[in-house]
Amino acid sequence: MTTAFNIVVCGSLVPDPLQTLEPIQGPTGPALKNEMMLPSVLDPWAGHALFEAANLAKHHPGTKVYLVSLGPKAKLQQLMMTIAQKVPFEFVCLDGPASGFLDSREVAKALASAIEKIPGLDKTKLLVFGGYSSASRDAGTTMQMIAEQLGISDVFLGADELKVQPDGSFRIMERIEGGQYQISSCAGAPIVIGWATGNLPEPPNNPQVGMANMRTIMPALQKAQPAALKTDGIQYASVQLPQQQRQTKIVKDTPVEEIAKEIVAWIRS
């Protein structure tokens, strides 16, 4: 039995991991220095979620994939250039901040209300995907709050695999302590999954996918609603880069035996 799903992937931009980050005090709280100028990428975990969604869509004809992003419109437009060639999706844009310093509750509210507004969304077939963490706030709380608002009571976090069983139920592998997986069986949609890295490679860039996606991306950007997020929930006393610079002792031109002895003594100490 094949089921057509409605998959909504929540994901936004984070600074390109190769960039050097520096916190500053902005008008409404902490921010990153030159935040609007920093090159961005799709949050890596949300990226995995998107690839999983696309893979599921490939095997379940009729499945629709939506990408819901909350971020500055201009930055999201740039982000689309780097991801829209990867997999087919319909874009839903929320114009607002993408800062890690926002309260996840505010973000979840904005995302859930955007999901509710997707025209023609069939909630009985709904799978809401996202990262189980983000490279900005790294809290791992947004997906559950979205689930609560959408009335979905089956939530999985740190998933690496979702298999649709012949009877339509799901077999889900979640990362738990000690490098183990918890295996669960869920009756079916609707569910919410916060993905870990999954097992799929990043898809190659496909120009035709890009061309097709772009037809919905530009209108979505044009009609992006501003998302008003409250920023007064958290009182930040300070945000700092870790200062500890270690005094590295360099041992060179030393025989391998000496080095090995020292390392073993240290391991044993």
Partner: peptide, 20 residues
């Protein structure tokens, strides 16, 4: 070039695909 690219993409009349 980022500024120009952003303006161009905003026009919706051309597509620029990096990483290709």
């Amino acid at each position: 070039t980022q500024w120009l690219g952003s303006n161009l993409m905003g026009s919706g009349l051309v597509q620029i695909w990096p990483s290709m």
